[in-house]
Structures are given as C-alpha cells and as structure tokens.
Design a protein around this nucleic acid. Structure first.
Lengths: 206, 206, 206, 206
DNA sequence: AATGAATGAGCATTCATTCAT
DNA sequence: TATGAATGAATGCTCATTCAT
C-alpha cells in the first residue's frame, strides 16, 4: 500500500510536470511551438516516457485545454459573486472572460482550441467542462427570468450558447484586430467591449 | 495583339487553375492540408511553375481569402436588397453570413483565416476588402440611426465591429458544436441562430 | 554593310549590358548571388535571350574574370611606371594588387575565381590573360637580374609564379582574417602587408 | 556500466561513420558536392538520424575542418622534429604543408574552407585550432630570433601570419595551375615549391 | 533573333511516433 | 517503467536550362 501510494504520487507528479513544461514552452513559443522534443528536454524525461503518460501530443493539448476551461470556470464563478442581480452577473461573466484572455492569453487560446481547429475532436471530459460553464450561465439566466429581468422570449439554454459564441468571437476579434482598429479607427479595446456588453444587455433585458 | 491576348488568357487560366486546385485540396484536406506538392499534382504543373504565378504558398491563401471576402461582400450586398428597413437589413446580413458559411464552408474559413492565425499578416488589399464589408454595415447602421430605429446610444462604427465579432463567433460555434448541441440539447442550428438574431435585434433597437 | 554594322553594334551592346548587369548584381549580392533571373530582370531581356549571348552562366563569370584580369594588368602596368628600379617595381606590383583588392573586391574575387573553385576550368583566353600578367613580372625580374639587384639564384619565371601565389594568398588571408587578426593581435592589414613585402624584398635581393 | 559504455561506443562509431561518409562523398564530388541525402545513403542511416549527431550540415563541415587542422598540426609537429635549426624547421613546415596537401587534398581544402568561404563563421574551437598552428610557428620564429638566424627586423607573430598566407597561396596555385605550368613552362611543382622556399629563406635569414 | 513560360531535380531541415533494450 | 536512438515522410522553395512560338 505504502509503495503503491508513493508510486502513484510519483506518476501524478510526472504527469503534472509534463503539463507544466508544455505550458512553459507554449508561453514562450506559442501554441504551435510545442513539440515533443522540447517537452522532453524541459521535463528531463526521455521522449519515449512522455508517451507513457500521454498517448500522443494531442492529449497533452487536451489536458491543458481542460485545465484552462476549469480555470475559466473558476474565474466565472468568482466573478459572479461580486454582483447582486443576475443581469449584472451575466455582464460580469463577459468581463471575466475578457480579463481571463488578457491575463492568460495562452489559456484563452487553449479554451477555444477546439473551436478553431477542425481536425481535433473533443473528448467526453472536455465536453463536460464546457457543459459546466454553460450550465452556470443557464442557471443565472434562469434566475433572471424568474426575476423578470430577462426578456421572457429568451430561452436560458439558447442564451447560454449564444453568449459563449458571441463573447469568444468578440475576444478573438479584439485579439487579432484590436491593434489595427485602435490605429485606424481610434477605438480602444475597452470601448469595443463596452459596446458589446451594452448590446447584449439591451438585447436580453425585459 | 491576337497572340498577346491569347497568351494573357492562358496565363489567367493557369492562375485560376492553381486557385481552383488549391480550393479542391482544401475542401478535401482542410485549410492546413494545402501544400505545394499537392497543388502541383492536381494542376499537372511542375512545382516551380506554381511559383511563377504565386510568390509563395501564403499568396495563394491570400488570393483565396480575398476571393472569399469579395464573395461574402456580394452575398451581403444581395441580401440587403430584399429588405426594406435598415434593421431588417442588418438581420439579413447575419443570415447571409450564416448561409454563406453553409454554402461555402471553405470560403467562410478563408474569410476569417487572418482572424485566427496570428502568424499571417494581411495585405493592403485584404484589409481593403474587410473595410468594404465593414463600411456597408456602418452605413446601414447609420441609416437606422437617422431612422430612429437604432438605439441612439449605439455608435454605427462600434456596432459594425461588434456585429462582425459576434456573428463570426456564433458561426464558429455552430460549426464546431452545432452537431453536439443538437444531439445533447436538442437545439437546432437554426434555433441558435434565431436566438442570436433576436438578442442582437433587441439589443440595438430604439 | 550599314545594317550589318548596326546589328553588330547592337549585339555588342547587349553583350556588355549583360556583363554590367551581372556585375551590379554581384556587387550587391556577392559572387554567389548571381542568378539568371536577376540578370534578365536587370537587363530587361528575356531569360532565353541571355543564352544567345552566353552559353551558360559560367561563361558570364568567365567573361567577367577576364575583364578583371585585364583591369588588374592595367593596374600593374600603371603601378610600375612610377617606380625607377625593377625591385621597386616588383614591390609596387604587390601594393597595386592589394589596392586593387581594396578598390574592387569583386574584381579581385573574380580574378582568383578559378584559383579557388575546382569545378571551373579556364578557357584559353583566360589563360592568356594570366600569362600576360605573369610575363610582365617575368620581364621586370629579368631586368632586376641584368641589373644585379636580383639574387642570381632566382629564376625570373619561377619567381613570377611564386609572386602571384604568395600575393594572392596574402590578400585572401587579409580578406578573411584581417579583422580578427586586428582584433586579437592588434596587427593592422597594412602591417601584415609590409611584413610580407619586406620578406619578399629580402628574399629576392642580391 | 558495461551497457553504458557500449552505447557510448556505438554512438561514437555512428558519429565517425557520418564523418567518414561525408569525407568519401567530398572526395568523389568535391567540397560542395556534400549533401545530406548522400550522407544518409552512404551511412545507411535515415536523414533525420544525421541530425541527432550534427545540428546541421555546416557542423559536419566544421568537424571535418577541425579534424583536418588537427592533422595538419600533427604533421607540422612531426616535421619539425627532424630538423635541427629553427630556420630548417620553418622550411620543414612549408614542406609538410605541401606534402599534407598532396597526401590529403580534401583535408587541405577543409583546412582553408573558412579562409575561402565568406559565409561561414568559425567556431571558437576552430579558431583555437588555427591559433595552435600559428603559435607553433611563432615559437620557432622566436627561437630563430634568439638564435640570431632570423632577420631582427622580422616580428615572429607577423611572420607567422605571412608564412601561412604565402604558403596556402602557393599550394592553391600549384593545385590549380600546377599542371598547366608544367605543360607550358616545363616547371615542376617541386621546382616552384623550392623557389618559394628559397625566397622565404632568403627573406627571413639574418 | 528574341521571348518567357515551363521544367523538375535538388536541398536542408523538422518532428511525431516507435521500439529494442 | 523508462529510455533515447532511429525513423522517414513531409515541405517550401530555388534556379539553370530548354524550347515552342
């Protein structure tokens, strides 16, 4: 038992070490800068060993994507605590998403990795993590509905899906075009975000 | 004159042949499945010949992206003709965007290629094509404002930016998650889209 | 006759234009930066046309090498006029060679192109141009011998060969290592050259 | 320990095999005939494997250049043992250099690879190997000076530089023009070399 | 003579994955 | 379990030369 436990712990540590190394590499070299040679070097493990912990490179990405989604979930959960009304909470979630992107650009990329890359397919676990986030929004929307602050024509589940799509789209746009919009049209990221939030708020309030 | 014309035409044909072959390949193997060997094989041209028509692989992508944006612009232009009021036109544009994606999934990907891939930089021409689309939306929003049908707090330019971000985000979501949402939550793509349109409409109407 | 003459002149002009363009390119991009595409562009001629004037790329190089050798010959001829005694003339030739290298580094490279690259074989004409230079040195050495200023054990022809080998070797060394020698050993190009000249002078004086 | 040792030995053997194959190829196809495909074929290794042993093609060249310089150093060291006086030693070095060229033409080319090709930059190690050779000559020249057999005006360091430049230049000349000189002027390589040695000897003796 | 489009072998380098030890 | 050496297909791009018009 003793030994088994230690072994298990060591294994867990290795697993985490690989993920941390991968993160570090991606932070430095970007999402596509990750390669197994670098991971091996960074972890001080043999390349073959990596494959004992992860079936392939994609699985590392999946694990990090999962981690990112969980972090995002936490960020959302935290953000809604400060707000009183459900509508304020929904707005808080948008802001939290944006701040998450600013603070952890890599994690944001990882969260939406599967939204961008066709080739990859989400695992059950990843789908679950998405569902959890979605469900949080659904519940708040439901409260807003009970509250009569949400437009009664809006279905909470539908809305939750839309909020995710719109917000990710907006952040991606800011990421890629933010600078150029600022330069040519003089509109700051914050302003864009505010406009977006305003549209959504107007769009859903009763 | 005769000969020169024929030559020119042949050259134009080759150019188009390369683009068409590239499209075909991407349709089969995805955006990142494109490679110069395949293009050569598909066009029956020598690899070197490709480089007489396009400086590098990226230029092929840029040409196709430009083509896609122009097609999208046309689709938008066409879509607004059928609608009477500016607000209806804005809604029509969202729908046109969705239909464009359904009809030409590859083109849709190409339109936002530069929105997704950090490494690529848009040429002047590509920026122009984006600007043209954006400007169309700005003008309609302005009419809606003049019209008193647009919420006076909304700035047409800001709105145009947001509309693009939100819509692309929504379509991407539908692309990647549409099937799974249908399966697990029983909500169809159309319903999601309708919800999105409704939110936007509510969000911007006076 | 008239027409024939004009044609001939035009042909000669084209020929020269190709050489000048090649020089310009090599000045900018180095000896190995020369390629037929660039020459075509620079001369405004079709690539195929180049091959009407030069059998292949190598022939362009050969022509330029010949030109360089002729220039060097002129430089030598000029340099010896200022000196009175044969020994002084020989020294002047070494200096002229060095100055030629400093003034026209490309020409210097071209002169010794065939001394460096195994694959190339000199044409009859190129050999002649070398012979001419060599002969000039032989004659001066002979004068020095008649003069009793040259060590009687030295054969003028042998010496001429050696002078060329030694001098080119020294200049090449200066070219490649000059900077590093200056940096680490504090010896300037001029000093190296002076030492070399001194050794040769001592080595051949009676 | 046993296994580790064997592994290490095998690795060393592969490393050497790659170098030997590269040598063989260069012997056949010249310095610039080396390419990674041929090396892979010759060694029966996969192309990727080569890159486990050498970071890139240049590193193979550097390793061979280093090897060549070390061999040359040995040849010099050996050559001076047979001579009594410093001046004789200096002459022996010239001869050793020539014999080295005759025996290992490829190695001779590799020694001066970096003297010819501008694009390449010497590693620290390569510079060291050059310095070692140079230093040997400096020391002998110093002895000759102490000895009063060297012209007091000659600085040992300067001389060492010159000796290298002159000798390499002479050997290159012999390499490229030796045959033609023999044919047209009836002077043998040995005679040229003797003349050169004589000039140097006269040039430096007190 | 002049054109210039077409050729295609050539090349250095990368990297996810495997497998014998 | 762990290793790490080996694999080899994949890829973007170049350029001297040819040849039909």
């Amino acid at each position: 038992m003793e030994i088994k436990g230690r072994k298990l712990k060591e294994k867990q540590e290795r697993y985490n070490a690989i993920l941390e190394a991968s993160e570090k590499i991606m932070q430095a070299d970007g999402l596509y800068g990750l390669n197994m040679d670098l991971v091996a070097k960074e972890t001080q493990l043999a390349k073959g060993t990596l494959y004992l912990y992860f079936k392939n490179k994609e699985e590392i990405l999946a694990a990090l994507s999962l981690k990112s989604r969980n972090l995002l979930f936490e960020a959302f959960a935290k953000s809604i605590k400060k707000s009183k009304t459900p509508i304020e909470q929904l707005k808080a979630i948008i802001l939290a998403n944006y701040q998450f992107f600013k603070k952890y650009p890599l994690y944001f990329e990882l969260v939406s990795l599967y939204e961008i890359n066709n080739k990859l397919t989400e695992t059950e676990e990843l789908q679950q993590s998405s569902y959890k986030i979605s469900q949080m929004v659904v519940e708040i929307a439901q409260k807003a509905k009970d509250n009569k602050t949400l437009n009664p024509n809006i279905d909470p589940v539908n809305f939750s899906i839309c909020l995710w799509g719109m917000t990710v789209g907006m952040i991606q746009l800011i990421k890629v075009r933010g600078a150029i919009i600022k330069q040519y049209q003089g509109i700051s990221e914050k302003e864009i975000l505010s406009s977006f939030v305003a549209i959504v708020e107007n769009g859903i309030r009763d």
